[in-house]
């Protein structure tokens, strides 16, 4: 099977060079071959684990965080918001 590394890179928002593309493709091919040796398993089972039910959180608010603490690591901040290039959808 051929891996479309370009498409994957686009999905993952990673830009790769031609040289990297060839290298990654080979390396992923190897890994995929390894993975394809997995035994076939009934895949109708769903991925739930009722033996380990989750404890839910009570709906009780906690004290708010300071905005400065939330934004202090942001590369660009303006008017109390993080800034991104203009997006219109």
């Amino acid at each position: 099977m051929k891996v479309d590394v370009k498409r994957l890179a686009k999905l993952a928002r990673i830009r790769i060079s031609e040289e990297q593309e060839v290298r990654y493709e080979q390396q992923m091919q190897d890994i995929i071959e390894m993975v394809e040796k997995l035994p076939p398993l009934e895949s109708r089972d769903s991925l739930v684990d009722p033996d380990h039910p989750m404890t839910l959180r009570k709906d009780v608010p906690s004290a708010p965080y300071k905005r400065d603490d939330i934004l202090k690591n942001a590369p660009q901040v303006q008017a109390g918001c993080v800034v991104v290039p203009k997006v219109i959808e």
Binding site: L8, A12, I14, I16, Q27
Partner: peptide
């Protein structure tokens, strides 16, 4: 990057 791409795949 390699693992992100594999995971994406």
């Amino acid at each position: 990057k390699r693992r992100i791409l594999l995971g994406t795949f």
